[in-house]
Simulated scan of single mutants.
Amino acid sequence: MAPHAHTHHEHHGADLIAEAARALVSGGEQWTSMREAVFAELARHERPVSAYDIADNLSAARGKRVAPNSVYRILDLFVTNNLAMRVESANAYLANTHPGCAHDCIFLVCDECGEAAHVDDETVSRAVRAIATSRQFKAERPVLEIRGLCKGCA
């Protein structure tokens, strides 16, 4: 059974922010200046970042305190609308570089450096959902995390 990774266009920088705004608005939500600031801060990180780190960085940049609970609410909205992915075991987030492309979250998480590589594999996603269905469980947002060491740390 060969893995199948679907293809999609990866967005970066200003293009990623514009695509996230488009996806959120097309989903019936508003793209506010605070949501844009949180997304831009999230998107500039290569590794998963916590809501507290985002709040601290935004507070420093704005010269006034940004509450972590506000950032958490925005990040939850982003996860719900497929603009961000949550690495559950680290309570940290990554920007989805292809908003609008629905898929399950499969992460390879390095215990040494904290890197989290996102993997798209339709075969694994279908298998996980089939297991849930066979037990009369409706999978809403499957997340699979494989902990270990990345190539650089191994």
Rank of each mutant, 00 (worst) to 15 (best):
Y93A: 00
T80E: 04
D76W: 03
D120R: 14
A5Q: 15
S70I: 03
R65Q: 07
C113Y: 04
L24K: 12
F137H: 10
A132Q: 06
V25Y: 02
D15G: 04
V71Q: 01
I17H: 12
A139F: 07
G114N: 08
I131Y: 15
D104F: 00
K151R: 13
E29L: 10
V79Q: 05
R65A: 05
Q30M: 05
R129P: 00
R22A: 05
I74E: 03
G63M: 11
C153F: 08
F39W: 08
A139Y: 08
H98I: 03
L75Q: 06
H45A: 09
A2T: 05
V49I: 14
E88S: 06
P99D: 12
Q30P: 03
D120K: 13
G27S: 14
A20P: 00
A5E: 15
G13N: 12
R73I: 01
D76S: 09
P3W: 12
H4L: 03
R147W: 10
D15T: 10
A90T: 06
R47V: 04
E36V: 10
L83Q: 11
Y52C: 05
D53L: 13
N96Y: 05
K151T: 10
A67I: 12
D53A: 15
I146M: 00
R65H: 06
C101W: 13
N69P: 06
I54H: 15
R47K: 15
C113G: 01
A84E: 02
R86L: 00
F137A: 02
H11C: 02
L108G: 08
T123L: 05
D56P: 01
P99C: 08
L149A: 10
R129Y: 02
V109Q: 03
H9P: 01
I17V: 15
D76M: 02
S134I: 07
I146F: 01
L83Y: 15
L149W: 11
R47L: 07
L108C: 11
L16D: 07
A20S: 10
